[in-house]
Design a binder for these strands. Structure first.
Lengths: 168, 168
DNA sequence: CGGGATCACACGGGAATACGTGGTCTCTCA
DNA sequence: TGAGAGACCACGTATTCCCGTGTGATCCCG
């Protein structure tokens, strides 16, 4: 898969007795493409969810904010949050990372984790939580953005596009 | 048909014991033209329907929205829905993808799938559902867009209206 | 205009490979 | 010396490759 730019898809993997999990091969490839054999993990503002980034992405987020407003309190807090709360998980030759007991507890997992792609990052969460998150996002997207998917760049002329959604 | 820009037509293909299906040659050609040997599949708002895109189209949808309003909750949700709910199906040298059992269940298929072109994307659904969707669209088209086809000089009527399968 | 040869494409199956998963062994550091 | 981390290995299943076959479509030439 040459040049996949984003993390996408959901993958459920097993945690072994030592707390190890395989990173989905596709995610791993993307991470390695971006540099190192590691990922940064910080707690999401969403409950029971951790966010994982390639280091560069995390640093990029910070740098962009800092440029805009170097000394603001907001940036201060963010820096503390990002770097203080971050965990660097480097993966071994087999492409696995170790989830510490604290990490596991934070997302309420014991023997399975879900890796859920989310554009330039991905989530780590429990299977149950993943269903909730996905379903909530789907419903809210549908309400607020009805047609967002339909409104594509090259709007077809004649065809069925502007039809009201059916399902019902 | 060199340079066809849109997915059009309906094709019913068989799912083999391993869950593989051949992508209609025309669709495949269009997909490869747009980049890689893969397609992104996400659940449609329509019930029992999956939507398939070239990856770039999906990414484009996201990027356009993100530019407009990077941190809004709506964009957050959409990103989660799009990327978390997506499946990347890359096709093999023979132009086939595998539909996971979950995918098959989501659209209620067991041994046959319909690929239904829809402009810049296409649908995956069961034969029965495809008839429903098509017929519903046809009827609503007629009500709301009465004359649309007649008015457009170049629009080939056949393409949109006919539509029993193009293949056998 | 017809009828045979050729080609493209959908489909099936066996073989090779990738990937997730479990275990062991060693090295390190307290 | 014991606990934990990391490297290394081993295995089974699932995915991908690769080749073969049939059938329908297309082309070609009489």
């Amino acid at each position: 898969m040459p040049g996949a730019n984003y993390f996408s898809g959901s993958f459920t993997h097993r945690i072994d007795g030592k707390g190890r999990v395989s990173i989905p091969a596709r995610f791993r490839a993307l991470l390695e493409e971006q540099g190192d054999s590691e990922m940064m993990v910080i707690p999401s503002y969403k409950d029971g969810v951790m966010e994982a980034f390639p280091r560069r992405v995390l640093e990029g987020i910070f740098e962009r904010l800092e440029e805009k407003d170097p000394q603001s309190e907001e940036v201060e807090d963010l820096a503390t949050y990002l770097f203080g709360g971050a965990n660097t998980l480097s993966f071994d030759k087999d492409g696995r990372v170790v989830l510490s007991p604290e990490l596991q507890e934070a997302i309420g997992v014991t023997d399975q984790v879900v890796f859920m792609g989310r554009a330039d990052r991905f989530y780590l969460l429990s299977p149950e939580r993943s269903r909730e998150v996905l379903e909530a996002a789907r419903i809210r997207s549908r309400e607020k953005h009805r047609g967002a998917l339909a409104r594509s760049r090259r709007a077809p002329q004649v065809q069925v596009t502007s039809l009201p959604d059916e399902d019902a």
